[in-house]
């Protein structure tokens, strides 16, 4: 029977005439059209992602003012940063901001998802209200906040304080208020986004688990702690870690609320974040080597956060 099958279809690949072609030419003939399609992306990717990573790593071990040739200084930049009080201040501010923003926005996001996770029109409207800052927040609204927190008597927050017979406060001029105000802004912008993620997570929990638990006599409180929360753990972890990573890299609100043309960080550097300090070092003082070292320290910290996430995720799988 097999004798009737033409020789070319017998699966004997080495007998095909293409075998003799030069490997490079054969590779090109086979893949050039497809490779050509990836070229625009790959050129940009190489130029603006791969090359800068290598260059940044090199620069972090040099002294470079953006004009003269970089001179190698070994680990000098890293050691200088770790003993630099401004860096330590920026790190403490950023860490406090990260912890406050991620915990509050995660907790509030979960609460809001539980309260307004339904399909009723009122729930949908409430979700839209909370979600709006994630879409139309940022740049457009930050100057409005600057106005709301104004220490002058037209500042809305201070007007509300007057109603409660409290003394007006110079919110943006008092170091103690800097990080709390930034956390408030961060939570304002993030909790609705986290709420949406939790709503999606809650909806992926099968309803019959709750029915079975209800039949077994579990009360709502027990159902929340024994079913919802354990099954929501992957979402919870994802939300918490992405919130932390985002908060750790916050630049905009710190810069906008606490910087002016002559100074970044506000009074006593109370509004200095790591990325604002990076900007200050690299682009205002032209210490590009030092700024690159700061970027790599930041990267290592974010990397540690991600590893922690993976590790926690694995513990979660074993459960």
């Amino acid at each position: 029977m097999t004798n009737h099958v033409p020789a070319s279809l017998q699966g004997a690949a080495p007998t095909t005439p293409y075998r003799r072609a030069h490997p490079v030419r054969r590779f090109l003939a086979q893949h050039a059209p497809a490779l050509g399609l990836t070229l625009p992306f790959l050129i940009l990717f190489a130029l603006f992602t791969i090359w800068p990573v290598l260059r940044s790593l090199y620069l972090s071990f040099t002294d470079y003012d953006a004009i003269s040739t970089p001179t190698l200084v070994g680990t000098g930049n890293y050691r200088a940063l770790l003993s630099d009080p401004r860096f330590v201040k920026a790190l403490t501010n950023t860490a406090a901001y990260m912890v406050g923003t991620s915990l509050l926005s995660t907790a509030l996001g979960l609460l809001l998802a539980l309260v307004f996770g339904g399909q009723r029109l009122s729930d949908q409207i409430m979700r839209a209200c909370f979600f709006l800052p994630s879409v139309a927040g940022g740049v457009g609204l930050i100057s409005v906040f600057k106005w709301l927190f104004s220490s002058e008597d037209f500042g809305l927050i201070n007007t509300l304080r007057q109603w409660l017979s409290l003394d007006p406060v110079r919110f943006l001029g008092a170091p103690a208020y800097a990080v709390p105000i930034l956390i408030a802004l961060g939570v304002w912008g993030l909790m609705g986004y986290n709420m949406i993620l939790f709503v999606a997570g809650l909806r992926s929990i099968p309803g019959d688990i709750y029915e079975a638990a209800a039949i077994d006599g579990a009360n709502p409180r027990q159902r929340f702690w024994k079913i919802t929360l354990p099954l929501l753990r992957p979402t919870l972890l994802f939300v918490l870690v992405t919130s932390m990573i985002g908060a750790f890299q916050e630049f905009f609100s710190f810069y906008f609320l606490f910087s002016d043309t002559s100074n970044v960080g506000g009074i006593l550097d109370s509004g200095l974040s790591l990325v604002v300090y990076l900007y200050d070092l690299g682009f205002r003082h032209l210490q590009m080597g030092m700024a690159s070292a700061l970027a790599w320290i930041l990267f290592l910290m974010l990397f540690a956060l991600t590893l922690l996430n993976l590790k926690l995720g694995r513990i979660n799988d074993i459960d």
Binding site: F48, I50, W51, P52, V53, G282, S292, A295, W296, F299
Partner: peptide
């Protein structure tokens, strides 16, 4: 794998060299 790995790199690392480029 390279693309996936590059997603770990925060933009702070590339912003200085990119400005220079």
């Amino acid at each position: 794998a390279l693309l996936l790995g590059s997603m770990m790199i925060p933009w702070e690392v590339t912003i200085i060299p990119n400005f220079l480029t």
